[in-house]
């Protein structure tokens, strides 16, 4: 199970990076969203995927779900949600001000 999810995270990373390397701003924004999803999936997998076990350590119970990745992923999701919205707003404003969404034209050569 873990290996499948790891491959899925890898695919998400690959597509995300591919999108970040595009020229269009919206694609870049989507790419950042994709790689943050990949990272979250990865955190979840790192705590081992199990079903039906409570996250409790008690005498006699040897099989339990690790609660820490869930706490980590929750924090991470909230942060990436915030950052993604900042990316979108900033991309929108940049497109409006600079009248282009092409990264090639956003290079800026005034000091060169």
């Amino acid at each position: 199970m873990e290996i499948i999810i790891c491959i899925l995270a890898g695919i998400l990373f690959a597509t995300g990076v591919y999108n970040i390397l595009q020229k269009q701003l919206l694609r870049i924004a989507i790419g950042t969203g994709l790689i943050s999803h990949a990272a979250h999936l990865f955190i979840l997998t790192m705590g081992k995927l199990k079903r039906g076990q409570p996250p409790i350590i008690e005498e006699g119970i040897t099989n339990y779900t690790d609660p820490l990745p869930h706490a980590l992923i929750l924090t991470s999701i909230v942060i990436s949600f915030g950052v993604t919205s900042v990316v979108l707003v900033l991309a929108y404003r940049t497109i409006n001000e600079n009248k282009t969404d092409n990264m090639d034209q956003l290079r800026g050569n005034e000091y060169e």
Partner: peptide, 21 residues
């Protein structure tokens, strides 16, 4: 600035997950 920092942060959190594993 935002994009480069966002990217490195995501790599950071992935590495923390690695280390945790």
């Amino acid at each position: 600035y935002l994009l480069i920092n966002l990217f490195s942060s995501i790599i950071f959190v992935t590495t923390v997950a690695f280390l945790y594993a």
